[in-house]
């Protein structure tokens, strides 16, 4: 009976997905924070506030999202895709501001 209880609650997670959700999402959250700081149409100080302080809430949301991925491979692929998009956004935002001569 007790053995049965133990088995019924055996977790069904893959290591790859768990690592993706717990570790891989942190660079994504940092990337999202930097992207917010780069692209939002508000003052630099306010962008820094939103970007810096949103990192940990974004990490939690991203971790929940990654845990729901159908597999570890899919979780990592989605993470890389999202990170690439955010990096591109950050790059474009910074390039536009640099081109306008307004600094970051």
């Amino acid at each position: 009976m007790a053995e049965e209880t133990v088995k019924r609650h055996e977790p069904q997670h893959s290591v790859a997905r768990t690592v993706a959700a717990l570790v891989g999402t942190f660079p994504l959250a940092l990337g999202a924070g930097v992207a917010l700081t780069s692209i939002l149409p508000i003052s630099l100080n306010e962008r820094l506030l939103l970007g810096t302080y949103s990192v940990f809430p974004i990490w939690v949301a991203a971790a929940c999202w990654a845990f729901l991925a159908p597999s570890g491979r899919r979780a990592w692929l989605d993470l890389f895709a999202a990170f690439a998009v955010l990096t591109l956004l950050a790059f474009i935002g910074l390039a536009i501001r640099s081109g306008m001569g307004t600094g970051p």
């Binding site: 942190f26 940092l30 924070g33 930097v34 820094l48 970007g51 810096t52 990192v55 950050a90 910074l94």
Partner: peptide
């Protein structure tokens, strides 16, 4: 934040 977030923002932005 001071060891992970702030240095990343200083480097990236």
């Amino acid at each position: 934040a001071w060891v992970l977030v702030e240095p990343t923002f200083a480097a990236a932005v």
